[in-house]
Simulated scan of single mutants.
Amino acid sequence: MGTTGTAEALTAAGIGAGDEVVVPSYATPDAAEAVRRAGAVPVFADIDPDSLCLDPASVAATLTLRAAAVMPVHLFGRRADLAGLRAVADRRGLLVIEYEPYEPHEPYEPPAATDENARRRRANAAYLNARLRGVVTPAAGPGIEHSYRTYVVRIPGNGRPDRDAFARALRARGVRCHVPVQTPVHRLPAHRRDLWLAETERAADQCLALPADAALTPRELHHVVAVCNALGGLVPEAA
């Protein structure tokens, strides 16, 4: 469901004025906007550092007597911890309404090609996971569902200058990349809140999306690895 459909689902569930819906701040603003369209108030919780999706413990800590629902956002092809979030919601009798955003940097895929493209993306991601050095690759392993709609790594360091310098160096060497979430939603003017979400802020400073889409050739994948590894993960800002 998009923003309009999600707002309608909230309204149909009886959620509206005076109600609060917990959403992630590390995401597009669409989920928060859907809550506002329904007349309710978005409340922001922190994310799990591995999945980059809502953290059940943080959600539990944000709940007030006005809480009516929890809205996990499935991000970059990684699924939120629905079991953990439902456990938190069930203790309070809250609804869980999932939201899967449109990711503007993701190439369009005709429905008939979706399964094959997903297989190729996973293969490309596995190649990058095994070979990239100096960056933190997406968590992978048994029990982790990830389609790698967007391949997001972390550039560790002392904050935004390291990640942004690394991105500029990649682009200068012909590797396309983008910052997947430029500004957490709770710091946008339309949704501004005076709160500190540590993992959200850290992800906003460190995360970078690298190419791993199905159309990449083996040569292009090798180039991504060679350029990233040659930079050594961190690129200090020029004095």
Rank of each mutant, 00 (worst) to 15 (best):
D115A: 14
D81S: 10
G84Y: 06
A140E: 07
G159M: 03
D81M: 09
W196T: 15
R122A: 10
H146Q: 06
E145I: 12
P107G: 06
A167L: 00
A139T: 08
A203F: 07
A118K: 04
L94I: 12
L170R: 01
G143M: 01
A126N: 03
L132S: 03
A112S: 12
V152D: 00
R91A: 14
T200K: 09
I97Y: 06
R121T: 07
D213E: 15
Y108W: 14
G174E: 05
P218K: 11
Y108Q: 12
D90T: 11
P104Y: 12
V135K: 01
D90C: 08
E145T: 11
H191F: 15
A214M: 07
R187Q: 15
T183L: 10
A87C: 08
L132W: 04
L95I: 09
P142L: 03
C207S: 13
Y99V: 06
G159C: 04
R86P: 09
A172P: 07
L188K: 08
V185M: 12
R122Y: 07
A140Y: 07
A112F: 14
R187K: 14
Y151L: 03
R219F: 08
L82Q: 03
R120T: 13
V152E: 00
R131V: 04
A118Y: 05
G134C: 04
G134F: 03
A190W: 12
L208Q: 05
P211E: 08
A165R: 10
T200E: 11
R160M: 08
A214D: 06
R193G: 10
D90A: 13
R91L: 13
A126S: 06
A140H: 10
R202C: 07
A169N: 06
T114L: 14
I144V: 10
R192M: 14
P161Y: 04
R168V: 08
R92T: 12
H178V: 11
A169D: 05
R173Q: 11
A113F: 15
D81Y: 09
R219G: 06
A87H: 08
Y127G: 01
P138M: 00
A167H: 00
D90M: 11
T150W: 01
A190T: 14
L216E: 03
V181D: 03
V152G: 00
A167G: 04
A212R: 00
L188I: 12
L170N: 01
N124K: 00
P156A: 03
R163W: 03
A125M: 02
L128G: 00
A172G: 09
A212F: 00
A87K: 09
P142N: 01
L216Y: 05
P184V: 02
N158D: 10
P180L: 05
H186T: 08
G157Y: 02
T183I: 12
H105N: 14
L94M: 10
E116V: 14
A198K: 14
R176I: 10
A165Y: 08
R193K: 15
V179R: 10
Y151S: 03
T183P: 05
L82A: 08
Y102T: 15
A212P: 00
P161S: 04
A203D: 06
R120A: 15
E201K: 09
A198T: 15
A112R: 14
V181K: 01
A204F: 05
H178K: 06
A125I: 05
V152A: 01
A198H: 15
A113E: 15
P104N: 12
R173K: 09
H186S: 10
G157M: 01
N129Y: 03
R173Y: 07
D205S: 09
C207W: 04
E106W: 12
P142D: 02
G143K: 02
V185W: 09
I144H: 03
L195K: 05
